[in-house]
Protein backbone atom coordinates (compact mmCIF):
# COMPACT_ATOMS: atom_id res chain seq x y z
CA UNK A 1 0.00 0.00 0.00
CA UNK A 2 1.23 3.49 -0.79
CA UNK A 3 0.96 6.07 1.96
CA UNK A 4 3.27 8.79 0.56
CA UNK A 5 3.79 10.52 3.85
CA UNK A 6 7.24 11.67 2.91
CA UNK A 7 6.98 12.62 -0.79
CA UNK A 8 10.44 14.09 -1.24
CA UNK A 9 10.80 15.85 2.10
CA UNK A 10 12.72 14.84 5.23
CA UNK A 11 10.60 14.62 8.34
CA UNK A 12 11.00 15.21 12.06
CA UNK A 13 8.87 12.71 14.00
CA UNK A 14 8.38 13.61 17.68
CA UNK A 15 7.02 11.10 20.20
CA UNK A 16 4.73 11.85 23.15
CA UNK A 17 3.11 9.49 25.67
CA UNK A 18 -0.66 9.85 25.80
CA UNK A 19 -1.62 11.28 29.19
CA UNK A 20 1.83 12.42 30.34
CA UNK A 21 1.14 14.81 32.00
CA UNK A 22 -2.52 14.75 30.82
CA UNK A 23 -4.49 13.78 27.72
CA UNK A 24 -5.34 17.42 26.93
CA UNK A 25 -1.67 18.40 27.27
CA UNK A 26 -0.71 15.60 24.87
CA UNK A 27 -3.22 17.03 22.40
CA UNK A 28 -1.66 20.48 22.83
CA UNK A 29 1.76 18.95 22.15
CA UNK A 30 0.57 17.14 19.00
CA UNK A 31 -1.00 20.30 17.60
CA UNK A 32 2.01 22.41 18.59
CA UNK A 33 4.37 19.88 16.99
CA UNK A 34 2.47 19.98 13.69
CA UNK A 35 2.39 23.80 13.78
CA UNK A 36 6.14 23.91 14.30
CA UNK A 37 7.40 21.63 11.60
CA UNK A 38 6.84 18.05 12.74
CA UNK A 39 6.01 15.87 9.73
CA UNK A 40 4.47 12.92 11.59
CA UNK A 41 3.65 12.59 15.28
CA UNK A 42 4.02 9.35 17.17
CA UNK A 43 1.73 8.90 20.21
CA UNK A 44 2.62 6.21 22.73
CA UNK A 45 -0.24 4.44 24.49
CA UNK A 46 1.10 3.74 27.98
CA UNK A 47 1.61 0.13 29.10
CA UNK A 48 2.50 -1.17 32.54
CA UNK A 49 5.46 -3.28 31.31
CA UNK A 50 6.99 -1.90 28.09
CA UNK A 51 10.02 -4.12 27.35
CA UNK A 52 11.18 -2.21 24.25
CA UNK A 53 11.37 1.14 25.98
CA UNK A 54 14.09 2.58 28.16
CA UNK A 55 13.73 4.03 31.64
CA UNK A 56 12.67 7.51 30.41
CA UNK A 57 9.70 6.29 28.36
CA UNK A 58 8.76 3.65 30.96
CA UNK A 59 8.64 6.33 33.66
CA UNK A 60 6.51 8.44 31.31
CA UNK A 61 4.10 5.50 30.86
CA UNK A 62 3.86 4.98 34.60
CA UNK A 63 3.18 8.71 35.18
CA UNK A 64 0.39 8.59 32.59
CA UNK A 65 -1.12 5.43 34.09
CA UNK A 66 -1.13 6.89 37.58
CA UNK A 67 -2.39 10.36 36.60
CA UNK A 68 -6.00 9.58 37.49
CA UNK A 69 -7.10 9.76 33.84
CA UNK A 70 -7.47 6.68 31.64
CA UNK A 71 -4.96 7.05 28.81
CA UNK A 72 -6.40 4.08 26.94
CA UNK A 73 -6.48 3.20 23.25
CA UNK A 74 -10.03 4.64 23.11
CA UNK A 75 -8.86 7.89 24.68
CA UNK A 76 -6.08 7.96 22.08
CA UNK A 77 -8.57 7.48 19.24
CA UNK A 78 -10.64 10.34 20.71
CA UNK A 79 -7.65 12.66 20.68
CA UNK A 80 -6.68 11.64 17.15
CA UNK A 81 -10.21 12.33 15.94
CA UNK A 82 -10.13 15.86 17.42
CA UNK A 83 -6.68 16.69 16.02
CA UNK A 84 -7.45 15.24 12.58
CA UNK A 85 -10.36 17.68 12.18
CA UNK A 86 -7.73 20.43 11.91
CA UNK A 87 -4.61 18.67 10.59
CA UNK A 88 -3.96 16.30 7.70
CA UNK A 89 -0.43 15.25 8.75
CA UNK A 90 -0.12 11.60 9.83
CA UNK A 91 -0.43 10.43 13.42
CA UNK A 92 0.83 6.96 14.35
CA UNK A 93 0.41 5.07 17.61
CA UNK A 94 3.28 3.25 19.25
CA UNK A 95 2.04 0.58 21.64
CA UNK A 96 2.77 -2.81 23.12
CA UNK A 97 1.05 -5.73 21.45
CA UNK A 98 -0.82 -6.78 24.60
CA UNK A 99 -2.92 -3.60 24.52
CA UNK A 100 -4.13 -4.48 21.01
CA UNK A 101 -4.79 -8.12 21.92
CA UNK A 102 -6.90 -6.89 24.80
CA UNK A 103 -8.79 -4.41 22.59
CA UNK A 104 -9.26 -6.99 19.80
CA UNK A 105 -7.17 -6.90 16.63
CA UNK A 106 -9.97 -6.27 14.13
CA UNK A 107 -11.78 -3.86 16.46
CA UNK A 108 -8.55 -1.95 16.93
CA UNK A 109 -7.91 -1.42 13.23
CA UNK A 110 -11.55 -0.63 12.45
CA UNK A 111 -11.69 1.99 15.20
CA UNK A 112 -8.26 3.30 14.19
CA UNK A 113 -9.58 3.90 10.69
CA UNK A 114 -12.73 5.59 12.01
CA UNK A 115 -10.65 7.93 14.21
CA UNK A 116 -8.39 8.95 11.34
CA UNK A 117 -5.27 7.32 12.82
CA UNK A 118 -2.75 6.76 10.02
CA UNK A 119 -0.45 4.08 11.34
CA UNK A 120 0.75 1.84 14.16
CA UNK A 121 4.16 0.82 15.47
CA UNK A 122 4.08 -2.30 17.64
CA UNK A 123 7.67 -2.77 18.84
CA UNK A 124 7.12 -6.20 20.42
CA UNK A 125 5.23 -7.68 17.47
CA UNK A 126 7.70 -9.45 15.17
CA UNK A 127 6.90 -10.18 11.52
CA UNK A 128 6.59 -13.88 12.40
CA UNK A 129 3.52 -13.20 14.58
CA UNK A 130 2.05 -10.35 12.51
CA UNK A 131 -0.25 -12.17 10.04
CA UNK A 132 -3.59 -11.25 11.62
CA UNK A 133 -2.43 -7.69 12.25
CA UNK A 134 -1.29 -7.15 8.67
CA UNK A 135 -4.58 -8.49 7.28
CA UNK A 136 -6.67 -6.24 9.53
CA UNK A 137 -4.48 -3.16 8.99
CA UNK A 138 -4.55 -3.50 5.22
CA UNK A 139 -8.31 -3.89 5.19
CA UNK A 140 -8.58 -0.72 7.26
CA UNK A 141 -5.85 1.07 5.29
CA UNK A 142 -3.95 1.83 8.48
CA UNK A 143 -0.16 1.51 8.05
CA UNK A 144 1.72 -1.17 9.98
CA UNK A 145 5.14 0.34 10.56
CA UNK A 146 7.78 -2.28 11.43
CA UNK A 147 10.99 -1.81 13.37
CA UNK A 148 14.36 -3.24 12.45
CA UNK A 149 17.77 -3.04 14.07
CA UNK A 150 21.15 -3.28 12.32
CA UNK A 151 21.45 -6.75 13.90
CA UNK A 152 18.61 -8.08 11.70
CA UNK A 153 19.53 -11.13 9.62
CA UNK A 154 19.38 -10.69 5.81
CA UNK A 155 16.38 -13.01 5.33
CA UNK A 156 14.31 -11.38 8.08
CA UNK A 157 15.30 -7.92 6.88
CA UNK A 158 13.95 -8.67 3.42
CA UNK A 159 10.69 -9.95 4.87
CA UNK A 160 10.24 -6.92 7.14
CA UNK A 161 11.17 -4.34 4.51
CA UNK A 162 8.65 -5.86 2.13
CA UNK A 163 5.90 -5.94 4.75
CA UNK A 164 6.20 -2.49 6.31
CA UNK A 165 3.79 0.30 5.36
CA UNK A 166 4.31 4.06 5.57
CA UNK A 167 7.98 3.83 6.47
CA UNK A 168 10.50 1.56 8.16
CA UNK A 169 11.49 2.39 11.73
CA UNK A 170 15.21 1.81 12.12
CA UNK A 171 16.45 1.40 15.66
CA UNK A 172 19.69 3.31 15.59
CA UNK A 173 21.50 1.48 18.37
CA UNK A 174 21.02 -1.75 20.20
CA UNK A 175 19.23 -1.42 23.48
CA UNK A 176 16.01 0.32 24.38
CA UNK A 177 14.78 3.83 23.71
CA UNK A 178 16.78 6.60 25.35
CA UNK A 179 19.20 9.39 24.66
CA UNK A 180 22.83 8.85 23.69
CA UNK A 181 25.81 11.08 23.07
CA UNK A 182 26.88 9.83 19.67
CA UNK A 183 25.12 8.09 16.83
CA UNK A 184 26.44 4.76 15.52
CA UNK A 185 28.57 4.99 12.41
CA UNK A 186 27.22 2.00 10.50
CA UNK A 187 23.70 3.37 9.91
CA UNK A 188 24.12 4.96 6.44
CA UNK A 189 25.33 1.63 5.06
CA UNK A 190 22.38 -0.17 6.63
CA UNK A 191 19.88 2.35 5.22
CA UNK A 192 21.40 1.79 1.78
CA UNK A 193 20.94 -1.95 2.25
CA UNK A 194 17.25 -1.40 3.06
CA UNK A 195 16.68 0.88 0.06
CA UNK A 196 18.23 -1.75 -2.20
CA UNK A 197 15.56 -4.25 -1.13
CA UNK A 198 12.73 -1.76 -1.57
CA UNK A 199 12.73 1.98 -2.02
CA UNK A 200 10.74 2.95 1.06
CA UNK A 201 11.17 5.84 3.52
CA UNK A 202 13.40 5.00 6.50
CA UNK A 203 13.07 6.86 9.79
CA UNK A 204 15.78 6.50 12.43
CA UNK A 205 14.88 6.45 16.09
CA UNK A 206 16.29 5.59 19.53
CA UNK A 207 18.97 7.94 20.76
CA UNK A 208 18.39 11.27 18.94
CA UNK A 209 18.71 14.22 21.32
CA UNK A 210 20.55 17.02 19.51
CA UNK A 211 20.10 19.14 16.38
CA UNK A 212 23.41 17.71 15.20
CA UNK A 213 21.96 14.17 15.47
CA UNK A 214 18.91 15.19 13.44
CA UNK A 215 21.10 16.81 10.83
CA UNK A 216 23.38 13.81 10.48
CA UNK A 217 20.51 11.28 10.41
CA UNK A 218 18.65 13.22 7.72
CA UNK A 219 21.64 13.16 5.39
CA UNK A 220 21.01 9.44 4.73
CA UNK A 221 17.51 8.71 6.17
CA UNK A 222 14.08 10.17 5.49
CA UNK A 223 12.94 10.78 9.03
CA UNK A 224 14.33 11.40 12.51
CA UNK A 225 12.28 10.11 15.46
CA UNK A 226 12.80 11.89 18.78
CA UNK A 227 11.21 10.43 21.91
CA UNK A 228 13.10 10.27 25.20
CA UNK A 229 14.68 13.70 24.68
CA UNK A 230 11.33 15.47 24.31
CA UNK A 231 9.80 13.46 27.16
CA UNK A 232 12.67 14.44 29.46
CA UNK A 233 12.41 18.08 28.38
CA UNK A 234 8.65 18.02 28.92
CA UNK A 235 9.05 16.92 32.53
CA UNK A 236 11.85 19.37 33.24
CA UNK A 237 10.69 22.48 31.42
CA UNK A 238 7.11 22.02 30.16
CA UNK A 239 5.21 22.11 26.88
CA UNK A 240 6.29 25.53 25.45
CA UNK A 241 9.96 24.56 25.76
CA UNK A 242 9.33 21.24 23.96
CA UNK A 243 7.53 23.05 21.14
CA UNK A 244 10.47 25.48 20.75
CA UNK A 245 12.86 22.52 20.62
CA UNK A 246 10.71 20.86 17.94
CA UNK A 247 10.80 24.06 15.86
CA UNK A 248 14.58 24.14 16.21
CA UNK A 249 15.02 20.44 15.32
CA UNK A 250 12.64 20.78 12.36
CA UNK A 251 14.53 23.71 10.88
CA UNK A 252 17.86 21.89 10.40
Amino acid sequence: MAFNWFNTSKLLIPYFTLGDPSISETETLVRGAFDNGAGIVEVGIPFSDPIADGPVIQASHLRALSSGESPTISAGFGMVQRVKQDYSKPIVFMLSVNLIISYGINEFFNDAKASGLNGVVIPDLPIEEAGDYLAASRKARVAMVFLVSPLCSPSRLERIVNATDGFLYLISTTGTTGTRDTMPADLPEFVAKIKKIRNIPVAVGFGISKTSHVKSVLTYADGAIVGSHFVTLLVAEGTPRVIREIAEFASV
Binding site: I51, A52, V97, P123, D124, L125, P126, E128, E129, F146, L147, V148, S149, L151, C152, S153, R156, I160, I171, T174, G175
Partner: peptide, 21 residues
Amino acid sequence: RSHFGHFGGRYVPDTLFSALE
Protein backbone atom coordinates in the same frame (compact mmCIF):
# COMPACT_ATOMS: atom_id res chain seq x y z
CA ARG B 1 8.94 -25.70 18.46
CA SER B 2 8.17 -22.02 18.94
CA HIS B 3 4.55 -22.35 20.01
CA PHE B 4 2.49 -24.52 22.35
CA GLY B 5 -0.96 -24.41 20.79
CA HIS B 6 -1.91 -20.73 20.76
CA PHE B 7 0.72 -19.87 23.32
CA GLY B 8 4.41 -19.02 23.29
CA GLY B 9 6.04 -17.32 20.33
CA ARG B 10 8.65 -14.63 20.28
CA TYR B 11 7.10 -11.25 21.00
CA VAL B 12 10.26 -9.17 21.26
CA PRO B 13 11.80 -6.18 19.47
CA ASP B 14 13.90 -7.00 16.43
CA THR B 15 17.06 -6.20 18.40
CA LEU B 16 16.73 -9.46 20.32
CA PHE B 17 16.08 -11.70 17.35
CA SER B 18 19.66 -12.44 16.43
CA ALA B 19 20.50 -13.33 20.04
CA LEU B 20 17.45 -15.63 20.26
CA GLU B 21 18.24 -17.21 16.90
